[in-house]
Amino acid sequence: MNGLLEVSGLTRRFGGILAVDSVSFAVAPGEILGIIGPNGSGKSTLFNCILGQLRPTAGRVRFAGREVTGLRPSLLSRLGIGRTFQLLQIFPKLKVRENLLAAGQEHRGSMLSRLFGAPDAGLAGAVEEMLAFFRLAHLAETPAGSLSYGQQKLLDIAMAFMAGPRLVFLDEPAGGVNPAMLAELEARLRALNRERGATFVLIEHNMEFVMGLCDRVLVMAEGRVIAEGTPREVRADARVIEAYLGG
C-alpha cells in the first residue's frame, strides 16, 4: 500500500472490551473515504486513536510515508492533518476572523516570530479566502458564539482547512445541519476536494450524504471493518444490512 494515510492493525482495548479491533485501511491522495457503522461500532474511537487523542493498544499509523502513531494532536496538525469533532468545537468568545487566525497561526514561522514578528504576516490572505469560500465574510468581526448553528458548523470546518492540510478527518459533518445548509456543505466539501485536491475521511450517519459524497465507504461493526467498497457495492452488501438491522 502506498496511500497518503496507512492504518494497519490498529487496536484499542478498554478494560475487557475491544473498541477497535485490528483495523487496517489506506486512503489515497484526493480520495473521499466514508466510515459508517451502527452506534458503538468504534468509529469515533478509531478517529481518536489515529488523531492522537487516545493511545492505541496496538497497530500503526503512517502519514505521507512517516510513522505518526501516538503523536500529539498539535504535531499531527502541523504535519498536515486537520480534523473536526462530532460536537461543534470553536472558540465562542473570539471573533470569526480570530478563530481562523488561531487555526492557521501555528503552521508558519517559529514561536519567537509569533511573539516578535509582524503578527499574522501571510495569514490575512488565507483568512479572506476562507471567509469568502465559506460565505462568512460578512460575519468576520462577529464573536463566533453568536453565529447560527449552521454558520458555526461552516466555521468549524473552515478552521480545519485554514492551514491547507493534506488530509482532513470530519466527524459527522452533517450532524444537526438543516437540509438547505446540508446542500451548501456538500457543495463546499466537494469544491475543496476538486479545486484543492483535499483528501477527506469522514464519519457520518446521514447515508444519503455519505453515498453522494464519498468515493469509497468503509463499514464498521463491533470494532471491525466488515465491508469496504464503492457506495454502490456497500449498499448491496448483505453483511452491511445485517449489521444495521441485526445489531
Binding site: G82, L94, A102, R114, A163
Partner: peptide
C-alpha cells in the same frame, strides 16, 4: 503580547483546549 499570536493562543487555550491542540496550537 496579548495582541500577538501568543495572546490569541492563550485565549484559544481558555476557550477550547482540545480544539486548540487539534489546530496545531501546542497547548502544553
Amino acid at each position: 503580547l496579548l495582541r500577538s499570536p501568543w495572546g490569541r493562543a492563550f485565549e484559544a487555550l481558555r476557550e477550547n483546549p482540545v480544539r486548540a491542540e487539534s489546530l496545531g496550537i501546542d497547548t502544553r
